[in-house]
Simulated scan of single mutants.
Amino acid sequence: GLGGQISLIHDDLKNMPERLGHNKYDVVTCNPPYFKTPKEAEQNMNEHLRIARHEILCTLEDVISVSSKLLKQGGKAALVHRPGRLLEIFELMKAYRIEPKRVQFIYPKQGK
Rank of each mutant, 00 (worst) to 15 (best):
L20D: 04
K39N: 04
N31I: 07
Y107K: 10
R85C: 03
I6L: 08
Y25V: 08
E47S: 11
E91H: 13
E18A: 13
K69E: 03
L8I: 04
Y96A: 12
R97Q: 15
D12Q: 07
R102P: 02
H48F: 03
A95W: 09
F90A: 13
I98D: 00
E91M: 08
L87R: 11
Q104Y: 09
F35L: 09
N46W: 15
E40V: 01
A41H: 12
L20S: 02
D26Y: 10
R50G: 06
G1D: 13
K94I: 10
T29I: 06
P83V: 09
V28H: 02
G3V: 10
R97I: 12
L92Y: 09
P108W: 05
V27I: 03
H54A: 06
R102C: 04
E18F: 09
L87G: 15
K94F: 09
R50Q: 08
P108A: 07
N46R: 15
I6K: 02
Y96D: 00
Q43T: 13
Q43P: 02
D11H: 03
I106F: 00
N31S: 02
E42P: 08
Y25W: 10
T59G: 01
L71Q: 03
E55W: 07
F105Y: 09
G84I: 08
Q43A: 09
L71V: 00
S7H: 06
N46E: 12
L70C: 03
K69A: 01
N15P: 01
K72T: 14
R82L: 15
N46I: 15
C58H: 03
E47W: 08
H48I: 05
V28F: 07
Y34Q: 00
K109F: 01
N46Q: 15
S7A: 03
K112V: 10
E42M: 12
A41Y: 13
L8H: 06
E88D: 11
K101W: 07
G75Q: 14
H81C: 13
I56N: 00
L79N: 06
G74L: 11
A41D: 05
R97S: 15
Y107P: 00
V80W: 10
R19I: 12
V66H: 00
L70A: 08
Q5V: 06
K101L: 14
L2H: 10
K76Y: 10
A95G: 05
Q43K: 08
I6F: 05
A78T: 12
F90C: 09
K72N: 13
I98W: 11
L2W: 09
H81V: 15
E18I: 09
V66P: 00
T59K: 00
V27H: 05
T37A: 01
H22Q: 10
V27L: 08
N15Q: 11
A77P: 01
L86K: 06
Q104M: 14
G75T: 15
S68M: 00
S68L: 00
